[in-house]
């Protein structure tokens, strides 16, 4: 009779995911090479020849004006995108009008079209000879080649970020919650304000953050429609290009670093806001 052998099955893998350490290693390597390395270079380059370039950039009045233009226009564009994006996502998900699939595909176009093409097309449309520009100029409204032009370009660029971040949340939002609210006598506005908006708020905020960050850094589409007048319609990324044109790499990276730090602060603020909104949501649910 053979002796009884017992094989103890031990879990050999510590992680449920196969190849965890390999994938983690690869991910960290790629992130390091593609994101961290260039950003580190950006951190160190401005100090190449002492702190002078950075101090100069920090106190340059034209730079302040350009930052103000970039951030104000990006903010305005996001504020315009917010209701339009919400409406668009709502229509696409809830009403499914004829041709909604086409509209759905078209929303991503601003991602796909080269930004220069966007800029030229918008400048043509809103320029003094364009379809919209010629009508607006009759009312004394100058759209292209002014800060308004920048807002128009950034609105176009930012819209998909808003729509695409709300859409999935809206789609998975249980209808019965709204129905219950309706049966309990909530009006349309109350259902929107008290049920829908709090649920959508985190997604909306992340969309806002993405669109805003993209708008602040946008160059290609903006320069064709902005007019690029110093102190008036000159965006910060254009100043970077100017420094590069002077072969002044330190100056260019100084502006880039300032832009990066402010954008980072904005994104952190948005994500904190989003977290406080979502935790507020959980509390209200009684969880």
């Amino acid at each position: 009779m053979k002796p009884l052998t017992v094989t103890v099955l031990r879990p050999t893998r510590r992680h449920t995911l196969p190849g965890f350490s390999l994938s983690l290693g690869l991910t960290l390597l790629w992130t390091g090479l593609i994101v961290v390395l260039p950003l580190t270079a950006l951190l160190f380059r401005p100090w190449h020849n002492g702190a002078g370039t950075m101090i100069h950039a920090l106190y340059d009045a034209r730079m302040h004006a350009a930052l103000r233009v970039s951030f104000t226009c990006a903010l305005l564009a996001v504020l315009i995108d917010l209701p339009i994006g919400l409406l668009l996502a709502w229509t696409l998900v809830r009403y499914r009008p004829p041709g909604h699939r086409v509209v759905d595909a078209m929303i991503d176009l601003p991602f796909a079209i080269p930004t220069a093409v966007t800029g030229i097309a918008l400048a043509t449309l809103y320029g003094p000879n364009g379809w919209i520009g010629s009508i607006s100029s009759q009312w004394g409204l100058k759209l292209a080649f002014s800060p308004a032009g920048i807002v128009i370009a950034l609105t176009f660029i930012g819209l998909p970020f808003i729509v695409r971040s709300i859409e999935p949340v809206l789609r998975s939002f249980p209808k019965d919650v709204e129905e219950a609210a309706f049966l309990l006598g909530a009006s349309g506005w109350q259902r929107f304000r008290l049920i829908l908006l709090p649920t959508l708020a985190p997604a909306l905020l992340s969309g806002v953050g993405l669109a805003f960050a993209r708008g602040v850094g946008e160059y290609g589409s903006v320069i064709f429609i902005a007019g690029n007048q110093p102190f008036h319609s000159e965006v910060a990324p254009l100043l970077i290009v100017m420094r590069l044109q002077e072969f002044n790499y330190d100056g260019a990276t100084s502006i880039a670093l300032i832009l990066l730090v402010i954008a980072l602060l904005c994104l952190v603020a948005v994500s904190r806001l989003r977290r406080s909104v979502s935790s507020g949501l959980v509390r209200e649910d009684g969880a």
Binding site: I120, F145, I223, F224, G227, N228, Q229, P230, L238, V241
Partner: peptide
Amino acid sequence: PVLDTGARGATN
């Protein structure tokens, strides 16, 4: 009125 960034842009 407009400072284009390149010569072709200005011609346009």
